[in-house]
Design a protein around this nucleic acid. Sequence first.
DNA 1: CAATTTATCAATCCAAAGATGTACGCCAAT
DNA 2: ATTGGCGTACATCTTTGGATTGATAAATTG
Lengths: 232, 232
Amino acid sequence: MREFRGKLRILLIDDNADHLRGVKELITLESNYDVVGATTSANIGINLIKKYHPDIVLMDINMPEKDGLQAIQDIEKLNLNTRVIALSGYDDADLIFRAMKLGAKGYILKTMASAQLIYAIDEVAAGKIYLPSALSSRFFDYFQRSFKEESNSADAENLLTYLTAREEEVLDLLTQGNNYKGIAGKLFISETTVKTHVNNIFQKLQVNDRTQAVLYALNNGFANKRRAKLAV
Amino acid sequence: MREFRGKLRILLIDDNADHLRGVKELITLESNYDVVGATTSANIGINLIKKYHPDIVLMDINMPEKDGLQAIQDIEKLNLNTRVIALSGYDDADLIFRAMKLGAKGYILKTMASAQLIYAIDEVAAGKIYLPSALSSRFFDYFQRSFKEESNSADAENLLTYLTAREEEVLDLLTQGNNYKGIAGKLFISETTVKTHVNNIFQKLQVNDRTQAVLYALNNGFANKRRAKLAV
DNA sequence: CAATTTATCAATCCAAAGATGTACGCCAAT
DNA sequence: ATTGGCGTACATCTTTGGATTGATAAATTG
């Protein structure tokens, strides 16, 4: 992935000046790394990234001024080949999850040994993901929990299962914002037939109108390929 | 997590009888494992799980009869302390992602060395997640890609930003399935005022009716705490 | 201060949505 | 052969939704 440039070009962003200096010295000691910048400001850091296109960014995500997570997102939107490793003092599952979600390629704790940091940089530079075993477990716990609730609510008896195939077709078109005429046109049936189906759908889903039907469908795992979301 | 029982109790499910036998022999060789069952049928396997409550299930997820992924989900719904490790011939990112999502605590390839399998069992039994580095990378690639599209579409100019605070309130109530009367009642304003707001919302979101407005809101990151979903 | 935006309300009109009842051909299961 | 579910269709009626225009007061902003 990374083309040969001799040295890995690294940018450091950490609002703690002491820690920033420490990491910088540590990395500079490694002969094959080149620190192209080190700043305590996320905003300045992002500008430096636009300028220098570093290979790796070490980003502290616990900063007051600008949220480090937000910064990661901004960097990802630049669509460079820059890979971000999140630096944090906390092994909080939610933090890890959000950092990875926003595109971080690694997550390491400030308390970790310096050898770990070097290893992480090498791994990420090689195109891999670096997540220490303990953090990885936290991540997956969080990840799986966020779906467990979903599948639980899903089996609280899903009224969608009572729909006939045709009704599902109609509901699918409803969830795309179609009105009666639109659905009739797409299914080559009359508008009154659509009304019949829609009314049957209302009965089965125990709702009063199309908006509620659409919401029910969306909230109960109605096959909807267009959405793939998780709360931020 | 796991209480002391002397030996780890393991159940094997694999529709390939040869592979099943091979794995069984391999595991039986380990002195601290106890194979409590081995079957080529997912359905029988699930019944065995209900009966024996094994510590670990090795589940082949490429089976014709019953989808292994579905089986994982079924097992998770039992809410036992049984941990499932997915066995697969493929290192397909989507497969890995779905298996983990449904609650698998590990994922290993059939081509992997037997030592790996033993190691994975021990790790998972100890409460950890086992995902070989290569598969982990695939997982995260997939994971991050599924969010990338989202954030891209989110900044394609979000018409929601044009809404006033009041309009957002109204839209929020719309996304809960309220009609005019309901909204008017909840905001202590007249129904005609609500209509005005809703009409303004339509204009700003460039949609024709409430259903489309609700869909737009949901698909464009409208703060909606109730949904936290990913496509299956 | 003047201009603009926002929130509120009203009246009207037409279109769309929803409720209800009826009906008929098809097909699968009993 | 009969029953029942499904898909289709229509008519009728009521309610809700949506477009348009206009108006007023408060808040915001230049």
